[in-house]
Write a protein that binds this DNA or RNA. Structure first.
Length: 426
RNA sequence: GUGAGUGUAGCUCAAGGGUUAGAGCACCGGACUGUGGAUCCGGUGGUUGGGGGUUCGAAUCCCCUCACUCACCCCA
């Protein structure tokens, strides 16, 4: 096949992206900082498969949710099983807990994971078909202190990644006891003013009246301003949980706004719901969203184990992160002649054993071209091997940043390179 | 899934019906005998996103399609 045909016929699937070496550094830094921070709080990584039985999400994410009804990558495998590329991570963790009886381990269970998720959605900025989430889940801890813990942890990560101008929105969506009453009242209120709503909201009034709060239409906003709020319907237990959650947030000195109209899109949330939004992210402004799901494990036939978690969108996160990429330092080998080339191949091996990145290019060049090349590639050091050096067994090492030059054996030069590294990092 | 906008070289952009679609940067090579960033010269690279139509003639006008962007929707 010609490259023309390749270009025409084979390209990355819509909504998916290659992450090229230039950008992948940012990903690695974000991922390693996330791991570092989560481990500081006692969270451990749990890796679940990318593919799961379709029923897992139908049951967990919710059969009526948008994600399940129109956004899943579902296919039948050769064994006739219905398989789905996970659109979110929480159901997988719940499955793993039940399957491996992880609830028998000391609780609370604290897990994290970083990986790709898949949703068949119309791509736009901050929304892709394969996207990546940093995911946190805690099981078996009812204390709202843990609700605040994960919010605080999210903020620590954001700060560590240089994310500024964020707003934390919190709410309680109640529980099985108090939420239904609120839902009825809200629907009643919405239907009462139905004729004043836009066509879209008239539909929402039937299906999901909570969504009317989000409408940008002026008439709808006005009509919605008189709607009842969940915060006025919470049962005493939920009210207390929400109250304490906020007290812990205050203890951490975290700024937040109570947003009584905040609903998470997934059906399973109970009590705490929160979202962290960033400015300058356009319509897809939520970089982190999460909440409590106290009934999910039980509904899967597992133990009565409460849960809470959040997901961060890595692509969104990186688009607002300000990460300084540390300069890479490596040695470029400038040689003259075939004998010198062979010597360089040996020397490079020795330097790599010392933990020093070394690059020997195989094309014979003039000295000037070697330097030009080293400069272009961003080498911090150039190690020169010519006839003189071969004879003496001592080599020239040039510091490309400060234009200083040293002479010595491999180990002496290695010490100079490492010495500078140590100086820089201390 | 709906609406709007944009698609010209790897990147940033010219050419707005009329020869063979250009420039800068990048890349490769040359000038430069064992010391870089500069300069000068040259080269590779495009069926103008793809397909169809109108026309003597289309990058340019029309239709379809695909991708991207924005908004809706949804959510991370």
């Amino acid at each position: 096949m010609s490259t023309d045909q390749l270009k025409k016929e084979i390209s990355a699937i819509k909504g998916t992206h290659d992450i090229l070496p230039g950008e992948v550094r940012l990903w690695q830094i974000a991922e390693s900082r996330a791991r570092e921070i989560f481990e500081l709080y006692g969270y451990r990584e749990l890796r679940a498969p990318v593919i799961e039985p379709t029923e897992l999400f139908e049951k967990g994410t919710g059969a009526s949710s948008d994600i399940v009804t129109k956004e899943m990558y579902t296919f039948t495998d050769k064994g006739g099983r219905s398989i789905t590329l996970r659109p979110e991570y929480t159901p997988s963790v719940v499955r793993a807990i039940i399957e491996h009886r992880l609830d028998l381990q000391p609780q609370p269970l604290r897990y994290y994971y970083i990986g790709p998720m898949f949703r068949y959605d119309r791509p736009q900025k901050g929304r892709y078909r394969q996207f990546h989430q940093i995911d946190i889940e805690v099981f078996g801890e009812k204390d709202p202190a843990v609700d605040a813990e994960i919010v605080e942890m999210a903020h620590r990560l954001l700060a560590r990644l240089g994310v500024e101008r964020v707003m934390t929105l919190v709410n309680s969506v109640g529980c099985k006891k108090c939420r239904p009453a609120y839902g009825q009242e809200l629907r009643k209120a919405a239907l009462a003013v139905k004729d004043r709503l836009c066509p879209d909201c008239q539909r929402k009034a039937e299906v999901n009246p909570l969504r009317i709060f989000d409408c940008k239409n002026e008439a709808c906003r006005e009509a919605a301003s008189g709607f009842p709020l969940i915060t006025d319907f919470l049962c005493p237990e939920c009210r207390e949980h929400f109250q304490k959650f906020r007290e812990y947030l205050d203890l951490y000195r975290l700024e937040y706004r109570v947003e009584p109209t905040l609903v998470r899109g997934l059906d399973y949330y109970t009590r705490t719901a929160f979202e962290i939004v960033a400015e300058h992210l356009g319509a897809q402004s939520a970089i982190c969203g999460g909440g409590r799901y106290d009934d999910m494990v039980k509904e899967f036939g597992g133990p009565d184990l409460c849960g809470i978690g959040f997901a961060m969108g890595v692509e969104r996160l990186l688009s607002v992160a300000r990460i300084q990429i540390p300069e890479t330092s490596f040695v470029y080998f400038a040689y003259l002649g075939q004998e010198a080339k062979k010597e360089c191949l040996r020397l490079a091996r020795a330097l790599r054993s010392e933990g020093i990145e070394s690059l020997v290019e195989f094309k014979d060049r003039r000295m000037k071209d070697h330097f030009s090349r080293a400069n272009k590639l961003g080498a911090e050091w150039v190690l020169i091997v010519g006839e003189d050096e071969l004879r003496k067994g001592k080599f020239q090492l040039k510091d490309m940043v400060n234009s200083r030059q040293f002479e010595g054996s491999v180990l002496e030069l290695a010490a100079i390179i490492k010495g500078k590294k140590i100086l820089e990092t201390t």
